[in-house]
Design a protein around this nucleic acid. Sequence first.
DNA 1: CGTCGTTTTGAGTTTCGTCAAACCCTGTGG
DNA 2: CCACAGGGTTTGACGAAACTCAAAACGACG
Lengths: 265, 265
Amino acid sequence: MDDPAAPSLGSLSGLRADEFARTSDWSRPVSSPCERCKLRALIICDKLLSSNAPGPNSDREEWQVHGLGRAQRNLKSAGDRANRVHVICEGWAFSFVQLPDGRKQILSILIPGDVVGSLAPFAETLSFSVQALTDIRYCGYSASSLKTRLTSQPELLEAWARLLLAERQGVLGLVVDLGARSADERVAHLMLDLKTRLEKRGLADGNSFSFPLSQRLIAAATALTPEHVSRVISRFRSARIIDTAKGALSILNTTALQRIGSLNF
Amino acid sequence: MDDPAAPSLGSLSGLRADEFARTSDWSRPVSSPCERCKLRALIICDKLLSSNAPGPNSDREEWQVHGLGRAQRNLKSAGDRANRVHVICEGWAFSFVQLPDGRKQILSILIPGDVVGSLAPFAETLSFSVQALTDIRYCGYSASSLKTRLTSQPELLEAWARLLLAERQGVLGLVVDLGARSADERVAHLMLDLKTRLEKRGLADGNSFSFPLSQRLIAAATALTPEHVSRVISRFRSARIIDTAKGALSILNTTALQRIGSLNF
DNA sequence: CGTCGTTTTGAGTTTCGTCAAACCCTGTGG
DNA sequence: CCACAGGGTTTGACGAAACTCAAAACGACG
């Protein structure tokens, strides 16, 4: 990994910046890079793309579309019609709910390979929003086609259910975090969780990896204030447990961080 | 409803106390009361019991079993093999995770009609535990049979997915509660949530209903301490917003309670 | 070089937790 | 019938964790 910083526009693989400019409307399809995708085997895409992929369905709706999204822009908003299941191919995003007073509560940080809106085939509308954190590349599958395929392909149903299981595991972890953990523990856990998830996807090898979360977002994810997050991170830094620089996080003392943030329940 | 208190052993419908005594082992089947069940139409049971219910499968495993559980006893424990999906027929229960230091974090309060372990068909083991809060009657469906039926009966898959949607909605609500709400708001919301859920099941009509939660459990559900819950409830009581007596909750001032605890996001 | 968002730091406050004791019920056994 | 034990609840004093408000420092970027 040459640059640990957040993926910039230019780094989105297979697409030059000018191509991005032309296709930045996220509903517009771009040429499919799935053949070269290293994540395919790790997640549900393999099952989705296997064999009998359907053509456009009755509504002339494409089974699979590719798109790009700019940092800070919403991919989905709560209340939107839930007609596609999306997979993050490159870049980071996060799902959240917006409270009436303007606060956001982040539900999950999405990294490449993560699926968002897995229940879309059966939902009327979205109950949360999704925002790109960096520029992202994603692909979307037709929710209605997926729904019909779920009944005809048992192994797809199985893979889809495993997805739901992992999702639920994640949100249960969040509940425990918010309900039973201190600020230090929550922040440490967030970092460790992201590290292991990135490793599973082959996106982090050493103890230093891309980490494009601002402290404001860490705060929204851990239900703390940005000021307090700053204090926690400063403390971690001066204890030589972690270091941060330019969108990257370095874990200097894994054991110490795990002692603080490993929640086994 | 003659007695707003928690259902006692004797009140479990269709079963006398001595019958309960003989069948208190929750794995032992008892005669099926599903025909008379008023909840059937409201939840997934209708789909599960419709038409082609399978007989015992290859493992000689019953498709549907009925059981009774005593208050305070675990119906399921984290780590157990996930081989049945259960429906609460009578009584209350709750799902929770046990933290290493002994604290419990309650994930959801289960009332009659609630389904627990809906993902069991695809899970190896349980990731949380379920405990009876009052004596309960429940029924359990074979996870493996359900799994095969999901692929063959699209309308069952649909009903099952709707269940998952509701479950996720619930846990997202919990995340927002724990992440963004004050103690007053959490307690008020818990009470309102239970009231509306009971009403939907036809188990509460007026503003006074059975509420067998101890303050220790309310604390575990809201991630507060019992002492603090006591203070909150005392304040509500002296503001004439609610009243509690003998396992029943009376909402004296719905508007006030909603002003405190209605979280719309 | 100035602007804007992010991070840092500080002082003061609030909310909630901790610890400990008292209280209230209900059930039990003498 | 009463004493007593044991759980749940209430109350109080105190402390700690995290929030609020405000200002300064630090970048990134035009």
